[in-house]
């Protein structure tokens, strides 16, 4: 049986998710992900031509807050979960490719 997802596609997805997979895992996930996709494909059987796309699962809209500042965390609290800090900043491995895109 040909899989829905071949090994290269699994490697690509793993790269996008920043996961490092060994060859055994690639094979394992190719099988698992393929059966998940197959299962989901059942939904294709439903005729959705006259159904509006859903932006949200709840029938709620316009939930806002007013633009009023509230107290933040202290810096010590903010940094307390970080694997590494210098007391002021979060410390991360050196970023060489500055891919910031925001």
């Amino acid at each position: 049986m040909t899989k829905k997802l071949d090994y290269d596609e699994v490697r690509e997805v793993a790269l996008l998710a920043r996961l490092e997979l060994c060859d055994n895992e690639v094979e394992e996930f190719a099988t698992q992900l393929s059966s998940i996709l197959e299962y989901i494909e059942k939904l294709d059987e439903l005729d959705t031509d006259d159904v509006e796309p859903l932006a949200h699962s709840l029938p709620i809209k316009n939930v806002f807050r007013e633009d009023i500042p509230r107290e933040c965390l202290s810096r010590d609290e903010a940094l307390s979960n970080a694997p590494d800090t210098d007391g002021e900043f979060f410390i991360v491995p050196k970023i060489l490719d500055d891919n910031s895109n925001a």
Binding site: V63, R65, D67, P69, R70, S74, A78, E88, F89
Partner: peptide, 30 residues
Amino acid sequence: SCPTGFGGEANTRVCPVCLGMPGVLPVMNK
């Protein structure tokens, strides 16, 4: 509801929402 603004000591205008903590709920600024 963290204040915006240029400057400020590093990591003093942060809260669980903008720090991306699990289980928090973002709410839009009108």
